[in-house]
Design a protein around this nucleic acid. Structure first.
Lengths: 258, 258
DNA sequence: GTATTATTTAGTAAAAACTACTAAATAAAT
DNA sequence: ATTTATTTAGTAGTTTTTACTAAATAATAC
């Protein structure tokens, strides 16, 4: 639970703990059973939805700040997390629309125009992917709501966040061909059909079911187990798991998936 | 010419014109006759070499700040310019080594620890490519020297700039397969041998001379002219030029070169 | 003019990769 | 034992890539 004192301290003294003029925004993609969603939040003092974001502590690395932010919103750790682009445009937030009275009303603190939060920021964009069924959402102290939205029916977003989502999705889909993905999104042991559905959903297009797994297996990323899973009146699929070493080696050095 | 008054104004009042805590660094690659070089500068108050960089005016976009920076250093406009990564690590610059007396000595201004220049910054990395024979180098006001270095024999760089160069080169080489390149680096009309040499040098590897141009021609990026160039006692090569429309369309939407 | 020369560049054969499709295998249910 | 639905190995056809060959050709030397 966030207390009023904490909110006040953040607003009035946050610039001592965080680096001013720099923020980060996270496009957190959520996958589950062939659905792709995006996490959005609603700020107390802003009408529409936007990407979750935050500030960078003076003591932490950029990627650590992003990981902390994702963890705070979703409750989940250790996700696939990548920088995609940094945004800086004097018009990306409209400070002329800043309404001091409204901020006082909703936050209970008088935030002046000189406050560190009411100033131009450069924002570093990260994206992340998680299994949304395992998450426990938690808005940040400046927000009232936090929810998953289907990627195909997002509301219009505030600031330059529509562009951010477009860029994040684009980068994520390119990365899918160059980095292995699946940890944290699939059970420890999974079937080829499951990982196939994951890739199809993330890429937003069909992949031939019989050709798709060949490359992954040829690259040694998947280990075929001697177990099967019973899921109906038909042949039981084999279970697979990731070859952890190869997986992390591929994460570091990249692969080519097609 | 930069006056002492300008230096003082930049140091003491720069934070009003520029966004504090954010900087940018540019890996400016220079190509000419099968040589690949990198532009480095030497700060007045720092011993080693580093990437040229600068700050972002409150009125300009990120990419405009980078373009301005590249133009100031090289005198050349309108180059291929791409963001590659943003760097943020509390240890990327070592402020404990900051030597107030040395700064006074070399700059003639007393720069205190509270000064905006002596504080943690997040740096946005851009890379750019130009023909180094067409450039007129110009150090920035905080530097004494500015020169091209062969990419294979760079001096060790200050701060995290070795990592930046590694990342910039890596990104540039990936981009070569996804964006057309050559404008500003080749004459208006050029031979297949010339563009082949450009790609080989930038990629740092051999490309089969007889297969290389096929994809570029098939994509319609190159227009074969009816002119030839006389350059020796042998068959004269045809001249080509870029299909401007296709070139810019490919810059926007990307291509796949292999 | 003609032969020589070095390089450009069209063409092709072989190899590799990719795609679309077929059918065998198989485990649960009846 | 049979039916059923799905997994997954296999393959044939296509496309792309790669490696190589040789024809074309313009400047030079004679």
């Amino acid at each position: 639970m966030v207390t009023q004192a904490q909110v006040e301290d953040f607003i009035l003294n946050g610039h001592k703990e965080y680096i001013p003029h720099v923020s980060l925004d996270c496009a957190i993609f959520g996958y589950h059973e062939q659905q792709l969603k995006l996490l959005l939040i609603r700020h107390k003092a802003v009408d529409g939805w936007c990407l979750p974001g935050g500030y960078i502590k003076r003591t932490e690395k950029l990627v650590e700040a992003a990981a902390r932010n994702v963890k705070e919103r979703t409750g989940v750790d250790n996700l696939f997390l990548q920088q995609f682009k940094t945004f800086g445009d004097p018009n990306r937030a409209k400070f002329e629309e800043f309404d001091e009275d409204r901020w006082y009303e909703v936050l209970g603190v008088r935030v002046g125009r000189g406050n560190w939060l009411i100033d131009q920021t450069i924002s570093v964009g990260f994206y992340s992917i998680t299994d949304f069924s395992r998450t426990v959402l938690q808005p940040d102290m400046m927000s009232i709501e936090c929810d998953w939205f289907d990627i195909d029916s997002l509301p219009p977003l505030e600031f330059d966040h529509n562009e951010m989502v477009r860029e994040a999705l684009h980068t994520m889909r390119i990365h899918l061909y160059h980095y292995p993905i699946g940890y944290n999104m699939l059970p420890e042991k999974f079937t080829l059909t499951e990982i196939h559905a994951l890739y199809e959903t993330l890429l937003g297009k069909k992949l031939d079911i019989s050709n798709f797994p060949k490359k992954l297996i040829a690259l040694g990323l998947l280990i075929k187990l001697d177990e099967k899973r019973s899921i109906g009146p038909h042949r039981s699929p084999h279970l697979y798991q990731f070859n952890k070493e190869r997986y992390h080696e591929a994460l570091r050095n990249g692969v080519v998936l097609s």
